[in-house]
Write a protein that binds this DNA or RNA. Structure first.
Length: 207
DNA sequence: GTACTGATATGCT
DNA sequence: GCATATCAGTACC
């Protein structure tokens, strides 16, 4: 089972919170990579100075933000890195959820090769910890590029979200709400508590 | 472990 | 020209 269009079509803050604990699945040439989502951020264009589409601004890059809920928006930042977002709310509303960090579950050796060009065993301690604990890093590890923009996560077989098993790890975890990071320029919007992560997870970008 | 620096696409002025 | 939703490498506690 995977979340429906209705799941992503709800309020952005609700979607951001409920994505925590779900599984991000990436299939490359029939090989599956899986990671548990442990950190997200909400971006709500109409009222959010940190959002690329603040005040219904529209440029070629941000077009996907106005698209159907459940599609991917992957943008290129600082000339080197990608960030992966999922569109929420209804079509025409420029809102989305940035996936900031995941916990590697399956295909860890492939992720390691994509990130450091080495098998997981040969990574340093720091490299193991840094495999997917940041927006640019998880895109490298999952081989997500701007080619994946517009991909529909509710129908795609190569990039989608999966419901987790109802085991101990996935029920009853605590969600921490806090301020977002890396957006000091956004004035009052920088203090909005729109960053969510799973308490005590070792795989978030910042505790 | 923390502090500093450089890489450089995209959109804004 | 200038700033940014970042990361890796290096230099140092």
């Amino acid at each position: 089972m995977r979340p429906s269009k209705e799941f992503f079509g709800r309020d952005t803050l609700v979607v951001a919170k409920e994505l925590l604990g779900k599984i991000l699945v990436r299939e490359i040439d029939g090989v599956k990579l899986k990671g548990r989502i442990v950190e997200t951020e909400a971006y709500i264009g109409p009222i959010d100075k940190a959002c690329h589409a603040y005040g219904f601004k529209k440029t070629p890059r941000v077009e996907p933000l106005y698209g159907e809920p459940g599609i991917a928006y992957v943008y290129f930042i600082y000339g080197m890195y990608y960030c992966f977002n999922i569109i929420s709310k209804e079509k025409g509303s420029p809102e989305g959820v940035l996936i900031r960090a995941v916990e590697p579950l399956e295909g860890i050796d492939i992720m390691s090769q994509l990130r450091a060009k080495k098998p997981y065993d040969e990574l340093t301690k720091a490299q193991k910890k840094n495999l997917t604990n940041g927006p640019g890093k998880l895109c490298m590890a999952f081989n997500i590029t701007k080619e994946n923009t517009w991909e529909d996560l509710t129908t795609s077989d190569e990039l989608y979200i999966e419901e987790p098993l109802n085991n101990q790890e996935n029920i009853g975890f605590e969600i921490v709400e806090t301020k977002r990071v890396g957006i000091d320029y956004a004035e009052e919007a920088k203090d909005f508590p729109w960053r969510f992560y799973i308490k005590d997870s070792k795989y978030v970008s910042r505790a």
